[in-house]
Amino acid sequence: MRYLLRRLLTSLGVVLGVVTITFVVARLVPSDPAALYAGPRARPAQVEQVRQDLNLDASIPAQYVSYLGDLFTGDLGISFANRRPIAEDLLNFLPATLELALLATGLSMAIGIPLGVWAAARQDRRRDNGIRLVAVTSVSVPVFWSALILQLFFANRLGLLPLSGRTSSDVEFAERTGFFLIDSVLSGSPSNVGDVLTHLVMPVIVMAAYPLGLTIRLIRGSMLEVLGEPFIEAARLGGVPERTVLFRLALKNALAPALTILGLTFAYSVSSAFLVEAVFNWPGIGRYLTDAIIRVDFPVITAATLVITVIYVLVNLLLDLLQARLDPRVELE
């Protein structure tokens, strides 16, 4: 418990550091936020008015302090582009991305871990070579290409899956959590669930490809190391069934070192979602952020960076706790 508090405190320090850096960078860029907010055809008087309204005429340190104060109350500022509170927009866009990233990471682990174990169990044999080929292919195929191929085949040619979007235009249900899979289940209509699922299939597969290859390679590598240990030989000599040796005795040893990197692929999926979201017209944080970058919408860029940082920090914390559960030698001190 004390460990958790201390880790949360240091995590807060990391977030504060990132906030400070993004703030400074945003202010260093030679453009006038007030002019951007007021728009290209605003008169100087209007720009001045905006400057006062947004508190941009205060000194930079004073702005920094008031910005931090706003952050603590959950106020992430207002978008220059659509003049809406950024916190509200993020609440709309973030679940869409998290839904994709969680499913993609889950899928890549559910498939990648057993494949990695099977490959290691048959090192350099035909099955191992086949699985390694799958791993190399899935990390090297670019997202935009695999997405287009899937769309061409399953949406255009076969018409089995919808081309893009989160739902069909005629499907509607209450968005209580923003996770459509949960919301559609809550709506109680199986056809809603089916619609959401069919929309998820392609983007999830495309997003899972890279972490899948990484999982296979990491698990295979650390399994090979563990399978050479005397305690594995001792267990086999002791008549422990090979399935138990591989998937229980060896895997628990192999998982701990691999997990740190695998967990970070989740955070990576969130921050690199923009390609998948662009191809599948998916209203997630990646598209929100790319739109903001194109429009030089500084408050949005800063806020989205902050959110992604927080996700990285939380995932890291979770991984450390998980690692301690897997390996009794790891002391949470």
Binding site: G238, V240, T244, L249, N253, D327, R329
Partner: peptide, 20 residues
């Protein structure tokens, strides 16, 4: 020779003994 390496570090003595 090395009893440290012949025991699985992430399972209890009881869990390992039960298997054999």
């Amino acid at each position: 020779q090395n009893p440290g390496a012949a025991l699985n570090p992430v399972f209890t003595i009881g869990q390992q003994l039960a298997l054999v």
